[in-house]
């Protein structure tokens, strides 16, 4: 026994290293794979308040209110579009929306963002209290931004489109062929669209939009335009490089979008799958 203790004391550096390293990797893997709620994240109260404070300094004070007003109005107008039919008088927009429209849009402001890592996240200044939940889509006026990952009372973190862990169902606007869009970690302006079959007509400049199959985004939200493409020999699929319409380096106001009947659709689909 005393020999073991002497051994550990002699090589304590290695033992400390292994101890802390195992713990770090446990955190790393459990956070990434099991999607576990952790209290250490940028939607946590302390970190988010600090980020919000710093974002407040960088806002131009005169532009702030005007912009917020515009984005609120934009979200309001989107809910009034013909696709979103409303059959009642508008008293309180959020309360009647529940049963009369297909999607709810809620304005939010980005308080933290990055484009230079492999796993980029965005932090929003709205959370559960404003009705934002895990799995909601996030869009801006120019197109798809990401998907909500975690929420707290007043903040939420968003898996940015510029995150190699995120895959989005996308389609070609002209021909309706659909495939999977993901980021390859190289340039913040481009993402890769794969699984478009070889018999589809593809040409540079075509618009790529969300497919609406995933219950996250409404159909037809712009993602980007085709920059260039190649046919992978032997596989029968195109590999398409898409120039993203959203400029992630210059993004402040976004909208969180939630499908009202999302749960119902998912339950039905799961029941069919499990048959």
């Amino acid at each position: 026994m005393s020999n073991i203790i002497r051994f550990i004391i002699k090589y304590n550096l290695v033992f400390f290293f292994l101890l802390f390293e195992v713990f770090s990797f446990y955190l790393l893997i459990s956070y990434n794979q099991h999607h576990k709620e952790t209290f250490l994240k940028s939607s946590g109260n302390v970190t988010a308040s600090l980020l919000q404070l710093s974002s407040g300094f960088t806002d131009y004070f005169s532009l702030k209110e005007a912009n917020e007003e515009l984005s609120r109005e934009n979200a309001y107008l989107r809910t009034l579009l013909p696709d979103n039919k409303i059959d009642k008088e508008i008293d309180d927009i959020y309360s009647i929306m529940e049963d009369s429209v297909e999607y709810i849009y809620r304005p939010a402001k980005i308080i933290n963002n990055s484009v230079n890592r492999l796993h980029n996240y965005i932090t929003l200044n709205k959370g559960e209290r404003d009705g934002i939940n895990r799995g909601d889509g996030v869009i801006s006026a120019r197109g798809v931004v990401g998907v909500v990952r975690y929420t707290s009372q007043n903040y939420s973190t968003v898996l940015s489109l510029l995150n190699t862990q995120l895959k989005i169902s996308a389609k070609l606007k002209e021909s309706n062929f659909f495939g999977t869009l993901e980021w390859n970690g190289k340039s913040y302006q481009h993402a890769i669209l794969s699984e478009i079959p070889a018999h589809a007509t593809v040409s540079t400049g075509d618009a790529v939009v969300s497919s609406g199959y995933s219950t996250i985004f409404p159909e037809g939200i712009l993602i980007g335009t085709i920059q260039d493409y190649e046919l992978i020999s032997g596989e029968g699929f195109y590999n398409i490089r898409v120039k993203l319409s959203v400029d992630f380096k210059n993004l402040t106001y976004v909208e969180a979008v939630k499908k009202i009947n999302k749960k119902e659709q998912l339950n039905l689909e799961n029941r069919t799958l499990n048959d």
Partner: peptide, 19 residues
């Protein structure tokens, strides 16, 4: 890590630096 949403990543690398 808490500020970059990468729990464990910088912690493990910094522990390696300490080693």
């Amino acid at each position: 890590d808490a500020f970059t949403n990468s729990i464990g990543l910088h912690a493990s690398a910094t522990v390696f630096l300490c080693f």
